[in-house]
Design a protein around this nucleic acid. Structure first.
Lengths: 249, 249
DNA sequence: CCCCAATGGCCTGATTCCAGACCATTGAAG
DNA sequence: CTTCAATGGTCTGGAATCAGGCCATTGGGG
């Protein structure tokens, strides 16, 4: 019967896999949990920060308040979040990023399985393209200042915040393209790799290299040099991927 | 109150827009209709072709058979599709691509609105990156042959099939990256622009230029020359975008 | 001190969507 | 001619999700 199945695949063949992929990402509740968790792990909200109010968050996520609350309850039971009632209350983050650990890294990689190469390729294409696109745009003074402040935030980061600020820096470049779809895709790609990236032990030498590459990226983008922005981003992502593969080998 | 809203946006600010985008793309039924329609317009299924059986299609789209059938009923009423019962029956495509029309083009562009630039940027980043990624991979003889056959299909295409075969060609490059996510993203980007692209009048001169650019892309990918693949794709997409903007101006 | 606006907590009815079963039809294979 | 496997056509019960309202709590402002 496997052969029969295989023949069916071949008959459809083509890119049917891309076109006929699932319409809905399964469960609204689980998807909501995942989104919130990723928002926290990505550093959009740090320890002690308040999430948007339930009603607003539900609207943004396109989900009913009931479903959102179910997700928040799950996160609460997992100890990631804590609700407080009353005016000036809200849902507050109680999650702290665990220290990097090679065992976690290997486990996360195993969980991803064959999707690892997929995610790395996807990320590479999106972020390299975004850097080039951002460089070729005319950026407003606000946008330029925003990018620079993301970079200085990152360079002065204490170790426990480094990963989150690194995420914010990379997401900021996506935003500079002016394409919401592209920014969202970059966020999604990074979410997939996030557990992996967060588990990479941080060596001073690597951080210094990364800082140089970050500066090169920002410099090229601000100078409007698309080619340089692309090359710098390529180099940076290749280094990260190599580091990752090194710990997995 | 608008000011209050604006201040809220600023407080969240960041990439919250990317992270807290809607979880579900609204309605499962409507989304299914859209997907099937795009699959047909994209040329995955031509006139007279049979769609996969309902049970299989429902499984692939991650939707219940009831929902899928509701979508098919809608497409049937729109005259795009026709069901036949019995063994060796199925759902058959009765849609024919309308002739390109500048009025349609302007209407489609108006429907897209501000999302047009977004979609063009997204497409550019994805397809340029995919071409480079495909070129840098080691392709199997099957893959190489597949790409070449897509190109020859396109070059020998009668006008009424040109757009569909053009789509297939571009989607094939996405598949060559080996990243299903990237291939899916390219399909999605193209779906958004599809009504626009299909409405562009085809001038012999443009078709010849496009054919040259296609050959350059294939040549570079098969030669493993990433830089050349990127440049050729960049040029091709820039030409298409310029053509588009020309008709809209 | 009291009020009240903003927040989380809770409930209900309606709607959408799903999983699975069963029926009706058809045409090729035996 | 009969069989039968694959297909579309139909139905039902239940789960998930939504829309909206109302309640309980809280702390700052009057």
């Amino acid at each position: 019967m496997d052969l029969e199945e295989a023949r069916k695949q071949a008959r459809l063949g083509w890119q049917a896999g891309a076109i006929f992929r699932p319409v809905r990402t399964g469960n609204a509740f689980e998807e909501t949990v995942e989104r919130l968790l990723q928002a926290i792990k990505l550093g959009v909200f740090g320890f002690g920060d308040r999430l948007p109010a339930e009603r607003e968050l539900a609207a943004r996520l396109g989900v009913s308040r009931e479903t959102l609350r179910e997700a928040l309850r799950t996160l609460q039971q997992a100890g990631c979040v804590e609700p407080r009632r009353g005016r000036y209350g809200g849902t507050f983050v109680t999650y702290r990023m665990p220290a990097p650990d090679v065992a976690d890294l290997r486990r996360a990689a195993r969980d991803l399985g064959g999707a690892l190469e997929d995610a790395l390729t996807y990320r590479q294409v999106l972020e390299v393209g975004a850097a080039e696109a951002a460089a070729r745009r005319t950026l407003s003074p606000d946008q330029r200042a925003h990018l620079e402040s993301r970079l200085t935030d990152l360079e002065g980061a204490p170790p426990e915040q480094y990963r989150q600020l690194d995420s914010r820096f990379h997401l900021a470049i996506g935003e500079l393209t002016g394409s919401p779809t592209l920014a969202a895709a970059i966020a999604e790609a990074r979410m997939r790799l996030n557990d992996l990236l967060n588990a990479i032990p941080m060596l001073d030498r690597n951080i210094e290299h990364a800082a140089e590459q970050h500066r090169a990226m920002v410099g090229a983008i601000l100078a409007g040099d698309g080619d340089a922005a692309r090359r710098a981003t390529e180099e940076h992502l290749a280094a990260t991927a190599a580091l990752l593969r090194g710990f997995l080998a």
